[in-house]
Design a protein around this nucleic acid. Structure first.
Lengths: 239, 239
DNA sequence: AAAACTAAAAATATAGATATTTTCCTTGAC
DNA sequence: GTCAAGGAAAATATCTATATTTTTAGTTTT
């Protein structure tokens, strides 16, 4: 009721707190490995780097602890979580199993709108030039986003917020591993677009078993390539 | 080398930081619902309650955000995460599915030592008087711990740190729901000891399918009882 | 070379300043 | 009279700067 024009309220942009800004900057820098695994995170240094007070940094780091990106030790401060071959393998396996659950549910519940979203996300992704060697940092970031949106769209209708949360958590972890080897990967003799299209087709056919199998292969292949890249580059992932 | 008696260093207790203390106190109070769902968490008030400075509280609250126990809104502070029937149902389902994965793996990998641990944890639990109406707060807490240790022991050999992490996360969430209805539950016409024993037996028989089915029933029954308790007590879990 | 001491650096905690949000009261319109 | 709008005042969140403790690294001594 009352008059229709009152406050414009065009959702400008949330006047976010410095803590939130620091949180996102830190997360982005850790996932992209601009802050390397096991790197010590000195609050004072970060405070200068981002131009944000120490308390806000400290709080942002704390929030990242439960996300598994930062580890904190009492009286010794923070550091970026380490990486290892065994963790990458565990992560990949866990992700395959849990995303398969979500995908199966999504296929069972998804409606036409869901199919449409998946198709358009897949299309957007396929038209991007990809994260290959010639790409700028911005290109790579855009591709990551599109890639994420495609996979998210597939799981979106699993109708389980908790399951979806967990998938997001695992995705975030995987992204870090992918970035870690990014500069070491070769011009990829891999047709990811084809993989995505096949996955999409299986989904449209509502063939959950095939879709899960394709998802498994998709993730496994990425991990294999990463592990190989580490070996070639002696980019030692200490076990 | 050198003389044997120097510093006693009997692993007294880690001289933990105030932040860690605050973190654990807050977590315990939220899980036990001494801090109720949706309750506003005023930093100043908590600072006095625990006798710990505001910064440490703030940091501890930040750490709880990613654990899904506290939610933060920029410029509006913190509050305990809300609860709902639908979330309880989602949580239970997700937990059933994911713990089943872990349990199956554990059964595949577990050795004699693992069996022994499971048996002894089950025994310890069965000899406890239980969390029934006549129990003191300390009794209840001890029972929770033993119950947790039993279930953890079952999953311990899944050989996937990530999967285990996620199970712990979900367990923590479930515990909060259990405590929420604790005072409303009736003298339980339920033989949990029997349920636990049957589950243990299936595991010793290495019958993964049966074990998962028993686990599912175990969790489902708890949730049913909780939902019923909410209804009777008008302990409204707003949908 | 190992232990003990010293000085610098860093993490943690406190207190106080600033800015935002909420509350509550007043005012005005229907 | 009731409801909505406006606007202080209080409460609260956020941030900075400072002080205290702990860790680390370097140096000396045994």
């Amino acid at each position: 009721m009352a008059n229709a024009v009152k406050t414009i309220d065009l959702q400008v942009k949330t006047p976010r707190s410095l803590t939130s800004q620091a949180f996102e900057s830190l997360r982005a820098d850790i996932i992209s490995c601009r802050l390397a695994p096991m790197e010590k995170l000195r609050v004072h240094a970060l405070s200068e780097r981002y131009g944000i007070g120490a308390t806000a940094i400290r709080e942002a780091l704390s929030r990242l602890v439960s996300d598994g990106l930062v580890e904190a030790t009492d009286q010794k401060g923070f550091r970026v979580c380490g990486v290892s071959r065994s963790e990458l393998l565990d992560l990949t396996n866990t992700r395959i199993e849990i995303e398969s659950l979500a995908l199966t549910k999504s296929i069972a519940n998804g409606d036409i709108e869901w199919e449409a979203e998946a198709i358009s996300a897949c299309h957007r992704l396929s038209r991007h030039s990809g994260p290959g060697p010639g790409a700028t940092d911005e290109d790579k970031e855009t591709w990551s986003k599109l890639h994420h949106q495609f996979h998210y769209a597939l799981l979106a209708k699993c109708s389980s917020p908790w399951l979806l949360n967990i998938c997001e958590l695992l995705h975030q972890q995987s992204e870090r591993y992918r970035h870690l080897a990014e500069f070491a990967t070769k011009p990829s003799m891999r047709d990811t677009t084809k993989e995505h299209n096949e996955l999409l087709q299986a989904i449209l056919d509502r063939d959950a078993l095939l879709a899960c199998e394709l998802l498994r292969k998709h993730f496994s292949r990425t991990t294999e390539i990463l592990l190989e890249a580490y070996q070639t580059a002696d980019n030692s992932l200490v076990a």
